[in-house]
Nucleic acid binder design. Structure first.
Ligand SMILES: [Mn+2]
Ligand SMILES: [Mn+2]
Ligand SMILES: [Mn+2]
Ligand SMILES: [Mn+2]
Lengths: 246, 246
DNA sequence: TTATAGTATTAGGTGAGCCTAACTTAGAGT
DNA sequence: ACTCTAAGTTAGGCTCACCTAATACTATAA
């Protein structure tokens, strides 16, 4: 039952998962680009991960010239690594005050090497968190993550309000920019307008409004549960106020 | 100036340092035994580390069939790795309450992979400690460690008293045993007797006395500065008492 | 002094994980 | 249907870090 893959193999499986989540289709090229490895090498590794040597099942399905899909077994490995990575991110950020972007690289380096016990102790110390500091969900020890409640900010209609639950953590500069806007997990955001051309969303956070590129808006997640019209939101406030008066 | 050796190469250099400190002479065999790697492989690696490819100097000196010595350059790498390892040991032990023996393995695994920045943050968080929890000295960032004040417990004469500063951390069972005796860093110890045959020291810690194998006594370090006759110790107590009365 | 045991080295081989260069395939445009 | 391009694969080669087996050296005991 104990998976014993190399750091490199785990890295590949993780990337398959992330590319799948981001684009819906995993090509050799996409993996190569993301990992900064030549397609020939990726091809070879995927072939290996698609083989079922130990009769325990393969890690990926691969139809040559088509695409790559994770099997449940491969997905578990990927989730496991993501769990390590995100627990480490949060731990380094909270316990050692490392900056967001630094944390990302350090956690990525260390993730394949921490023991299950250290993982568990970090998780316990952090109170078994469900998300890291950018809102990236932390998979359970069983390799499960529930994202049914997440949707992209870009899917919000004009006039709707919702709570930000996740920002993209890949680009440090973007992360810093979003932070200056106050666009961080936990913030409430209202979509004020959407341009017909150029794919720009105007969003309100508190008093300030900001234009947001569609590309960026698609990378930010909001909680579907928190979604409501700005009108409804005002009425809610009203109700609270009344309650307060009585 | 930035050394960029593989985890494996660093591991070899560290082991050369430790074997040197322990036995005074570093053979291929000793390295092989300690690292659980075949002598042929060790031989090859030492040859590489003894070469001066980049004209920056070699990491070790090697006289075939004789022995291996660290150059200052190699020593720095080894010290650097030991610093990582011992800072991690202390950090994991204090921050995450991991047990002594677990900490050792985890720290050894992670040491080659933490960044200089993480090292520095851990050091700062711990208050730039000089020793880890077993009393192993933590080298400075410059790769320097001052051991002039340390001497083996076995060198203590009968009737002498001294403070324990280090216990061997390689064998978890031994570590636990020493802990049950109260033989831990910071403890005061008096040598009561020494058998003429069998190499056994009888030592007193507080009220209790215990026989200690010479092998074990050679592995425990005391502070040379704290060394004094038990008589002197009694007099000191006497003085303190008098001072207290006035 | 020479035989021998123990230690070290060399020669040759393996798998992981990358590379480049050459070839194959799929899909889109003419 | 044919052609061209982009994507994917295969072939062959490299380094690293290990291995085994064969050989060479050293030091000690006869
Ligand atoms: Mn884990
Ligand atoms: Mn993150
Ligand atoms: Mn360092
Ligand atoms: Mn230690």
């Amino acid at each position: 039952m104990q998976e014993c893959l190399s750091a490199s193999e785990q890295e590949y499986l993780k990337t398959v998962l992330l590319v799948q989540q981001k684009t819906g289709h995993v090509t050799i090229q996409a993996l190569a680009a993301r990992m900064e490895i030549k397609p020939a090498s990726v091809s070879a590794m995927i072939r290996r991960l698609a083989q079922d040597e130990d009769a325990q099942g393969a890690y990926v399905m691969h139809t040559p010239y088509q695409g790559v899909t994770l099997t449940r077994r491969g997905e578990k490995v990927a989730m496991e690594l993501l769990r390590h990575q995100r627990l480490l991110e949060l731990f380094l950020a909270t316990t050692l005050d490392m900056s967001w972007e630094q944390v990302h690289d350090e956690a990525e380096h260390l993730a394949p090497f921490i023991s299950e016990d250290l993982e568990e102790r970090i998780a316990a110390r952090l109170g078994h968190p469900a998300r890291d500091q950018h809102g990236d969900p932390i998979p359970s020890r069983e390799g499960i993550v529930d994202l049914t409640d997440d949707m992209p900010l870009s899917a919000l209609e004009v006039g709707m309000q919702a709570k930000v639950v996740r920002v993209p953590d890949e680009d440090p500069a973007l992360l810093r920019y979003l932070a200056t806007l106050g666009l961080i997990p936990g913030a409430w955001i209202t979509v004020e307008a959407r341009t017909p051309y150029g794919d720009i969303l105007t969003v309100r956070m508190g008093e300030a409004t900001h234009p947001l590129a569609g590309e960026v808006a698609r990378g930010v997640s909001i909680s579907a549960m928190s979604r409501r019209s700005a009108q409804a939101s005002l009425e809610e406030q009203e109700r609270k106020h009344e309650k307060f008066l009585t």
